[in-house]
Design a protein around this nucleic acid. Sequence first.
DNA 1: TACGTCATGTAATCGGTTACATGATTGC
DNA 2: GCAATCATGTAACCGATTACATGACGTA
Lengths: 187, 187
Amino acid sequence: MKKDNHTKYAILGLLTTDCHSGYGIKQMIDQSLNHFWKISYGQIYPMLKQLVTDELATVRTTTQDGKPDKKEYVITAKGEAALQEWLQTPIDAIPVERNAVLLKLFFSRHQYADTTIRQLEDYQQKLEERYSTYKAIEAMIASLMHNKQDSPYWLFTLDYGKRLTKAAIDWCSDTIDQINNGRASDG
Amino acid sequence: MKKDNHTKYAILGLLTTDCHSGYGIKQMIDQSLNHFWKISYGQIYPMLKQLVTDELATVRTTTQDGKPDKKEYVITAKGEAALQEWLQTPIDAIPVERNAVLLKLFFSRHQYADTTIRQLEDYQQKLEERYSTYKAIEAMIASLMHNKQDSPYWLFTLDYGKRLTKAAIDWCSDTIDQINNGRASDG
DNA sequence: TACGTCATGTAATCGGTTACATGATTGC
DNA sequence: GCAATCATGTAACCGATTACATGACGTA
C-alpha cells in the first residue's frame, strides 16, 4: 500500500475552487493556506502533469486579455472521486513538528539566561507577526466571501492557526517570567 | 552562507547529556524530545562520523558487561563552541507546519458534515493520547531529575507541547459544535 | 535454538526546495 | 528601454525515511 501524497490532494482540492492554473494554485496557497500548507513550483507543475496522466484532471491552453496565455486545469469526475476518498480517510498519525526554538531551549543550560530570554522574545515577536497576518486573512475571507460555500471551513482553519499561535505567545511570556524568577533566586 | 542543519546540533547537544552513542541518542529523542524532534538512524550514524571528521567530537569503542560493544562519542571544546554559537543564533523564520487535517477541513464542503465531524473526532482523540503521553513524560522528568541542571528547560518544552495540544483539543470541540449548529440551521 | 534488546551501519528512495531558464504583457 | 507581474517549466540538490543487513549478548 502506497503512502498518501497529501500535496497531490492539495492541488486537486484547489482545482475545485477558482484556481485552475499552476500560478493560481501557488498564489492561493501562499495567501490563504499558508498557516498550514506550502508548496513550490517545483512540485506544482510536475504534479499537474501527473494529474492529467492519471486522468484526474484535464488541461487546455487559454488566452487572456492583457496577460500571457495560461494552462487551465479542470478536475474530472475521477478526480473528484479521488478527492472525496482522500477526504474520508483519517490521517494515520499526527506527525512530529520539528521546532528549532524548543531544541535550543532544551539545551539552554549551556547558555546565559539573558541569551535564552532573547531567543524567546525573538520567537514571541515572530509569533505576534504571524498572528496579525492570520487576523488580516480572516477579515479578508469574512468580508469578501460571506456568500461562498467554502468560507466557514476556511475560517475554521484560520481559527486553529490563531488559537495555537496565541497559546505559543502566552507560553513565551510565562516561560520568560519563569526564567527571570529562577535567575533572581540563583543570585 | 550555508543553511543551518539543526539535526547536527540536536546530536551535538545530546552529547552534552548522558547520551554518548548513536543508539542512546535515538532512544533519548524518541523518549524525551519526541514532542518537537525526531530522527532516524540513517541520519544519526553518518552525522556522528561527520562530527568526528569536523573535530566537534571524538570516538572510542568501549566494552560493556552483558551488552555488545558500543562507540562512545565525546564532544570536544570546538564542539561546545559550535553548539553555543548555534544556541545564540535566532531562528530565521517560523516554518510552515503542514497539517493534513486542516487541509481536509479546508475542502470539506465536498463532504457530508458527518464525515467532517468524524475526522475531527479522530484528530481530537489522537491529540488526547498525545496529551497523556506528555503528562507522563513530564512526571518522569520531574521525579527522576529534580536535581539535574537540564530539567527546568526540559519541562518548559513539555509545557509548550501540552499547551498547544490543549488548544488544539479545544478547537476540535468548538469546531465540531459549530458544524453541528450549522447543520441544524440548514435543515 | 529462538527471541528480545542492544548496537552499528548503508543504499535506495522520496518529498520538497533552490536556482535557474524562458517568455508574454503592461505601465512607467 | 526597463521593471513588475503573470506564467511555465526543469535539474541539481538536500534532508530525511525506509528497508535492509549484520552481529553481540542474555534469557527462556
